[in-house]
Write a protein that binds this DNA or RNA. Structure first.
Lengths: 332, 332
DNA sequence: CTGTTAGCGCTTTCAC
DNA sequence: GTGAAAGCGCTAACAG
């Protein structure tokens, strides 16, 4: 211990400046990632001093003046679903790649979100990505101090940008597929009807069924989850239809498993099964479910564009559509 | 617009104080969640003023003096796996329930994590939950300004607390199950051997196999993922063994699917299959994989204890063990 | 290019 | 119980 009085507190920029023999301002500039006017030799000294001290800037303090924290909030209802896995890992990775970090906010049943959010740092993020449908665009905007809110939950208004998969094309293809295989009577297994995404989705299914002269025999209500798929599968007069459209792959998986249980021989061939989301797992043998998906990479790319340059979205068009596609598998 | 000069900036505590006709100090105390000396009527006035202005404290500024941000970092390699879904949703929910928020850090392939971390707010969290095995306890501790690091990746040293499932009991039960069913020759499908958790796990399998006189025919290297399970399943001289132990359910699922593909009739009965993690999906018909799991709620409870009172962990014992169990399903 | 001086918004001594 | 004042660590004017 040559320099005995070892402080218990982390080195600040003032320490660096002192050691380098310059003012705090110079130190700040030398350490900045932006190009700032500093003479070469002073920059050199500052950098050396910072390295020697192991100085790391306090980003909290910095954010106080710069008004930016490089933090993005991802607001979700929950992360139960398989389709979430496919999305969030890539999303986080991409957000981090532009130097921002992700704060995950799970709003669950949406009790007093407002208050909750304000008591947490999430309230101060640079941008919020709203997957949860706990609130409409205006409410969400009000909940954050800035307007950098990207609606990904299907809700939108004239002020907030939104990215929404264009489900029309995928659903149309799925129904066309069914019709071409002779389907005349269909069942629709739906998710939480409170969600506007779901309402729109259901409406598209109905209009496409109608257009293809397929009779909607019944509409069964689930909640997107695997469990709810099982539930409706066991409850219903199931034989009436020759096709079942589920608005999530998880529900389709539940349906499939119940039939797998009841008919332990191969796949039930009594009806054609269609899912939604195109989860990775559906690519394999256990759940070969025909499904509707969209390119997650494209979708996330659009999100990243927003995060990089929110201003692009505040002008121009607010609604970005990502096309969906239909994938036929052996379930249909 | 009666009060025309509407500022474009959010109300600060100074505004509240002014409106209430008190000093900033009083306003601060009145607004504090802790009990602080303020006369009843002033507190009243402050609260009213705050409400009227829609004042919300700037938590970033607060953290500058309080040295606490109510933010917890969750450090993961990635969130690809099904077992992650089962864990993280509950974890986030529980952390939020104690008034903290979660910043998710995905370290991926672990390039320059150090630098990356320091450039983000994650560097300033109150505590870090380390699931990723990108670094040992000491390194991780050094990367954060405080010592509130909880190791959940199997790595530990004398200074950092760790919570680790006690895999011995579960694995022993699985191997016992196999032996009781006449298994004599086994295959072991492993994850990334770089991970110390995995090394320990493999060692336990080996000693248990030995103890039960089961010959380890071969050891196949995967990386925990479903894909790697498929890969080893198709590559290998597979018939030598009458049991296959996989160190993750995802790999077992991959193995199962490859065999499902190759033997489209029912489940392959040529060997007994054991997984690890006890993912929710294994409870159902498609992947009825015997597995080893632990109670996620208990595990998370222990994590929460740490977050509530890190000091409890800095004294007392540092290693918390959560018992594992074996679940027999039709795959074995 | 450089250093001084103000703050950012909040909490916290410390006297009164 | 109260308020003035001093910071937390940093960056951003503003003169030199």
């Amino acid at each position: 211990m040559t320099e005995s009085r070892k402080r218990h507190t982390l080195p600040t920029i003032a320490d660096v400046a002192e050691l380098a023999g310059v003012s705090r301002a110079i130190a700040s500039r030398a350490l900045s990632s932006e190009p700032r006017p500093v003479s070469a030799d002073k920059r050199e000294r500052v950098l050396a001093a910072a390295a020697k001290l192991g100085f790391k800037p306090n980003l909290l303090a910095r954010s106080l003046t710069t008004k930016t924290v490089n933090l993005v909030a991802v607001i979700v209802n929950h992360i139960h679903d398989l389709s979430d896995l496919d999305l969030f890992d890539l999303l986080i990775s991409q957000i981090q790649s532009i130097g921002k970090q992700v704060i995950f906010v799970r709003v669950g049943s949406a009790e007093r979100i407002d208050e909750f959010l304000r008591n947490g740092i999430a309230y101060h993020v640079d941008a919020a990505l709203v997957f949860s449908d706990f609130a409409d665009a205006q409410t969400v905007r009000k909940m954050f101090r800035n307007d950098s809110v990207l609606m990904l939950n299907g809700m939108r208004d004239s002020s907030s940008p939104a990215i929404i998969p264009d489900e029309q094309v995928g659903i149309a293809a799925a129904v066309t597929d069914a019709r071409s295989k002779g389907v005349r009577k269909a069942l629709l297994v739906t998710g939480r009807s409170a969600s506007p995404v779901e309402q729109a989705r259901i409406a598209i299914y109905k209009s496409e069924l109608l257009r293809h002269n397929i009779v909607l025999v019944a509409e069964l209500r689930g909640d997107y989850s695997y469990q709810s798929g099982r539930h409706v599968a066991s409850s219903s007069d199931w034989r009436k239809a020759d096709a079942v459209f589920c608005t999530s792959d998880a529900m389709a998986m539940g349906v499939l498993d119940v039939h797998r249980r009841d008919f332990p021989e191969n796949m039930p061939q009594s009806f054609r099964l269609y899912g939604f989301d195109d989860v990775t797992l559906a690519e394999y043998e256990a759940y070969p479910i025909s499904s509707i998906g969209y390119d997650k990479a494209v979708y996330i790319d659009e999100i990243l564009k927003f995060l990089r340059e929110p201003s692009l979205f505040s002008a121009g068009e607010k609604l970005i559509q990502v096309p969906t596609y239909f994938v036929a598998r052996s379930s249909s």
